[in-house]
Nucleic acid binder design. Structure first.
Length: 114
DNA sequence: TTAATTTGACCGGG
DNA sequence: CCCGGTCAAATTAA
């Protein structure tokens, strides 16, 4: 199975799913990587106000990992049910009271083809 | 038939 | 003019 041929990146949202409802709005090849970067925004229906974005890109280091970048906070949905919200709170505490985090990255494993 | 994705166009910053 | 972020019409999925 090859991620680049028959399957589009976003058809694998199962393995990349993080509990939020993302809607893809773009995909672009990035000069520095042979894999495309995908652009998502929060799919919250009453789509007004929620500025949260997400980017996902397969890493080239052969580890079958994806770099997931979260940008902005979800102004929608019931918040505290999300592990991502907890991660953001954690980061905010380390940053101190004067600043707050608006984006962070994490690496997650890609699909397992075994 | 409605909703989500795909994909080239569009656009703004450097 | 290049690069990357977004838009939106066409296409596909639900």
């Amino acid at each position: 199975m090859n991620i680049d041929s028959t399957n589009r990146f976003t058809k694998m949202t199962k393995v990349l799913d993080d509990g939020y409802a993302w809607r893809k709005y773009g995909e672009r090849n990035i000069l520095s990587s042979k894999f495309p970067r995908c652009y998502f925004r929060c799919a919250y229906k009453h789509d007004q106000g929620c500025k949260a974005l997400k980017q996902a890109q397969k890493l080239e280091d052969g580890t079958n990992m994806y770099r997931i970048t979260y940008i902005g906070r979800h102004a929608c949905l019931l918040p505290n049910t999300s592990h991502l919200g907890e991660e953001l709170d954690q980061w905010d505490q380390e940053l101190g009271p004067d600043s707050f985090l608006i984006s962070f990255e994490k690496k997650i494993p890609g699909p397992d083809y075994s």
